[in-house]
Structure formats: structure tokens, C-alpha cells
Amino acid sequence: MAHHATKQAACANCDYAFVPGEPDEFCPSCGQQNHAVEIGFGHVAEEFLEGIFHFDGKVFSTAKLLLFRPGELTRRFLAGHRVPYVPPIRLYVFISFVFFLLLGTQLGHEDAGEAEKRAEPAATKKLATTPDSDSISFFQGPKAQRTARKSVDQAITKAFAARVDSLAAAPATPGQQKALKAARREQARLVAAARAGGGFQIAFAEIKRLPAHPTDAQVDSVVRSKGAVPSLMSRLAVRRTIRWRDSTREEVVHQLLRGGSIMLFLLMPLAALLLKGAYFRQHRYYLGHLIFTVHVQCFLFIFLGLVMGLDKLNALPGWLSNLLLLVPAVYFIVALRTFYQQSWRKTVVKSLLLGVAYSLTALLSLLTVGAIGVALF
């Protein structure tokens, strides 16, 4: 496309003197475009449209192969056909940005009713069913936790002792025996629940009463109330709990999306390693497996984005929604067959093994990123 901005006799950046009669669109010394800074709006619009339509041409050819010919885009790109298609990393960045933007919109915003429910943490309601369960603190060491669990057991036993004794002393009617067994089962359940969750339960009752920005003295008071010594980790745990307590739905969604995007980005190199192990006899470079992984991930983003859009419009019947769950699996198998050129039987078997290995890797990554996200939120 021709540009009609005023050309200059010398480069404004490096003072290179353009030779009359030779191309002067760009400086051959530094590469800067040769036109004055004061350009009209029409020229800006012309350059903008040129960039957009040039990029769109690549997008259409890339999307056609990516969506309807699984594995073919990777095969062509590694064969050297790079000019007609969008580079893998640029494609991933653009599609993942649009996907997570749509996902954030899909999750919506909290209303007044949800805000009121958030004012009373669900964890506090759950702990309230266990007598003295908040006496077991996240901040305590193993010895203090064992002592606290013992006190919880004693409190629960004492709470049920009177009822159990009265039921045991009553006439041995079928109804009384049934009630006695139910009371003992409930007692055992509460003791087991306290023991199982005690090591990770934080003193929510005390933390709930703290302001949004507590002082160090207030935080240390909560920690000491559980018989623990204030430390960097215990103070951090209190402040992060307050942060989650006071977070809006938008803030939580933003944190989840950020953690999810990081996790998926980190999973791609790991998935490429799994592919390299599954097809080690082909002696392919690691980069080829990584590009294949990027293209498959891009397809998943596009597919899930379309499904979310159709679901938002209520355009999908239930049976079709269930059927669409098979599309990613079928796409992955066909992509493996196209790119790695093995028999269908070997491809299906390897796809199942890769699916299991990837699921375990994703679960481990999810737990890791989740823990880091909670700590740094």
C-alpha cells in the first residue's frame, strides 16, 4: 500500500541521507520509516487498516487449518510454511486473552444478596457445628495441635455424655436403641471431623472480628490466643484470611482467572515433554512438540469460547451440550494421527495414556498455583 506522508531528505533518527531515485520508504541504516511526525489522520487510518487486513489474512488461513484440520497447521508450520500463518506464540497470546476476557464476563458480577452472604464466611458456619473446633489453630505447632485435638475430643464427649447415659439407662425399646446408636455415630463423626480438619482450621471467629486493615498488635493477639508464637507465616495467614474474607466476587474471579492463565501457560511445556516421551522414537525436536501443544491449546480456547457463547444464548439443547464434550478428545486424537503419522490403534492408546498423565500433571499444577495464589492474593 502506498503512503502519501511527506518524505524527508534524511532520516530523522540517524541522519542517513537518502539517495535520490532509490527507495526511501524506510531507512536502510536503522530501519525507521521515513515520514514526518506531523501526519494527517487519513494517513494514520491508512496504516491502521493495512495492519489490520494484513493480520486478518493470516488469521483466516490459520483458523481454517486450526479448527477444521487438526494437526495440519503444526505440520505445515514445521515444514517451513510460516509466512501464511500466525506464529504460535502470538496466536496463543491473542486467543488466550480473548478467552479469559469472555470467561470473566461469563462469570458475571455479584449482587446485593451475594454480598450479604459473603459477609458471613461459609467456613464459620461449618466450624460452628463442631464444639470448640476453633481451638485448633493453623498457627500452632504439632504438639499444640495434638493438645487442642484432645480438648476437642473431651468437649464433644462431654457434650454427648448426658444424652448417651440417659438413652442407655432408658428401657431397651427399639426406638431407644436406635436413638442411642444415632447419638454415638454423631459423636464419632464430630470427633473424626475435628481430627481430620483440625490442622488446617484457622481461628475464624477471632479473625471475623478484626478490621479490614488490622494492626500488628491485633494480628499477634489472634495468634497468641491460640497458644502460638507470632511469626512471619502466622501473621501472613491471618492477613490473607482477612483479604479473602473481604474480597468481592470480581476480585476472586480475577484471581482465579489469573491463576488459571498462569497454570495453563506453565502446563504447555510439561505437556510437550509428555509428547516427547510418548514419541521418543521419532527423534523430533522438543520445539515441534511444544508448537503442537500450543496449537491444541488454542483450539480448546476457541472451542470453549464458542460453547460459552452458545450457552449464554441458550442455543444448545442438553443432549448437544453433552455430545460436544467429546469434541476435544476426538480433535486431539485426529491431531496426533495427522502430525505424528502413526496407526489409529497406536494413536488412540497413546492419547489415553497422555490424557491420564496430563490430568495428573494438571491436578498437581492446580494445587501448586492455587496455594501460591491464596498466599499472594
Score class of each variant (00 low, 15 high):
Val349Asp: 12
Tyr285Arg: 00
Asn314Ala: 13
Ser247Val: 03
Val238Thr: 06
Tyr358Ala: 09
Lys125Trp: 05
Ala192Pro: 05
Ala188Asp: 15
Pro142Asn: 04
Val330Gly: 00
Phe332Glu: 03
Phe160Val: 10
Ser234Asp: 00
Ala144Pro: 06
Tyr340Val: 04
Ser29Cys: 08
Gly80Asn: 09
Leu167Cys: 01
Ala161Gly: 02
Gln255Gly: 06
Thr361Met: 10
Leu266Tyr: 11
Leu360Ser: 00
Asp246Met: 08
Arg224Gln: 12
Ala170Met: 01
Gly277Glu: 02
Leu49Gln: 15
Ala168Asn: 15
Gln145Lys: 11
Gly197Thr: 02
Val294Asn: 06
Ala159Gly: 11
Ala2Cys: 02
Tyr358Ser: 01
Lys181Glu: 15
Leu257Gly: 04
Ala278Ile: 01
Ala162Val: 05
Gln187Ala: 07
Arg82Lys: 11
Tyr358Asp: 06
Leu287Thr: 10
Lys117Cys: 07
Leu325Ala: 10
Phe26Ala: 15
Thr215His: 05
Arg243Trp: 09
Pro171Lys: 11
Pro121Arg: 06
Phe60Ala: 14
Val296Thr: 14
Arg149Trp: 13
Glu46Lys: 09
Val59Trp: 14
Gln8Trp: 07
Thr6Tyr: 04
Lys158Ile: 13
Gln201Cys: 08
Pro84Gly: 02
Ala79Asp: 13
Ser133Pro: 00
Ile136His: 07
Arg189Met: 10
Ser321Glu: 07
Ser247Phe: 04
Leu304Ile: 04
Phe26Lys: 14
Leu363Phe: 13
Gln187Asn: 03
Val330Trp: 03
Ala112His: 11
Ser29Gln: 05
Thr62Ser: 04
Val356Pro: 07
Asp56Ile: 05
Ala148Pro: 15
Leu367Met: 11
Lys125Ala: 02
Ala237Trp: 15
Ala228Ser: 13
Leu180Val: 11
Val86Phe: 15
Arg245Tyr: 03
Pro28Met: 15
Glu47Thr: 01
Ile242Cys: 07
Thr368His: 07
Gly108Lys: 05
Arg90Asp: 08
Ser225Gly: 09
Glu46Cys: 01
Glu116Leu: 12
Ala212Trp: 02
Lys208His: 11
Ile136Tyr: 11
Cys30Arg: 12
Pro121Cys: 10
Met1Leu: 08
Pro88Ser: 04
Leu49Asn: 11
Ala144Gly: 10
Arg284Phe: 01
Phe339Trp: 02
Asn322Gly: 15
Phe97Ala: 15
His295Trp: 06
Gln341Trp: 03
Ser96Asn: 12
Lys126Tyr: 15
Ala278Leu: 13
Pro269Tyr: 02
Ala192Gln: 13
Ile302Arg: 00
Val83Asp: 14
Lys208Met: 07
Val238His: 00
Arg185Tyr: 05
Glu47His: 06
Leu270Asn: 06
Glu206Val: 11
Thr157His: 13
Ala196Lys: 15
Val294Gly: 01
Glu251Gly: 00
Arg245Pro: 04
Gly21Gln: 12
Leu376Asp: 12
Pro87Gln: 04
Gln106Arg: 14
Gln255Val: 05
Ala169Gln: 03
His283Trp: 09
